[in-house]
Amino acid sequence: MIWLELCLVYLKIGILGFGGGYAMLSLIQADVVDRYGWISLQEFTDIVAISQMTPGPIGINSATYIGYTAIHNAGYSMPVSILGSCLTTFSVCLPSFLLVLLISYAFAKFRHNKYVESAFLGLRPATVGLIAAAALLLMNEENFIDYKSYLIFAVAFGLTWKFKIHPILMIVLAGVAGLLLY
C-alpha cells in the first residue's frame, strides 16, 4: 500500500529529521531509495540537484518531488500523482506542527531543559555523520560514471570550499560542463 507507506515514511522523516536538510538526506534515501525502491539513486540525485536550484527548504522540495515521482512511477495518472506530493508534504510537516503546539505550552521550560540539552550532546556530532553518509551513499557508479565525473566533483568541491561559490551557480556550471564533456 504505497499511500500509507509514503505517509509513514514522511512522518518518520518529520520526527527524526534533526540537523537540517542535508542531514535529512540520508534518512530520506534509506527509505525512499533503498528500502522501498520508489525512485532510483540517480533520480534521487537529480531531485537533490533540483531542490538546490529552486527556492524553498530542501525538505519541502524533496518531499513534494518524491511524492509526485513515487506515485507516478507506480503507474498512476498525473492528477493522482499530485495528490501524492500533497500527502508527503503534509506528512513531513505534521510532526513539526504537533511539536510546536506541545512546546509552546512549556516554552520557557523547554529552552534550558537538561534532557534536551543532553540529547543534543549526542545529536550534534551525529548530524555531521549523517551528512557525510548522504555524500558517501551518492558516490557510486550510477553518479560517477567515468574519470570526468571525479574531475567535476574535485573542481566543484574545491570551488565551493575555497571560494564559497553559490550552490545554484555551481550546479549551473556543472550542468554546462556536462554538456561540453559528454
Partner: peptide, 30 residues
C-alpha cells in the same frame, strides 16, 4: 541534452553535500 547536463551535475551535487559536512564539523568544534 538534459541527460548530458545531468551527467555533469550529479558529481557536483555530491560535492555540495560534502562541503557543509566539513563546515558543520568545524562550527560545532568537534
Amino acid at each position: 541534452w538534459v541527460e548530458k547536463a545531468f551527467k555533469g551535475l550529479r558529481p557536483a551535487v555530491v560535492a555540495l553535500i560534502a562541503v557543509p559536512c566539513l563546515t558543520t564539523a568545524r562550527s560545532i568544534k568537534l
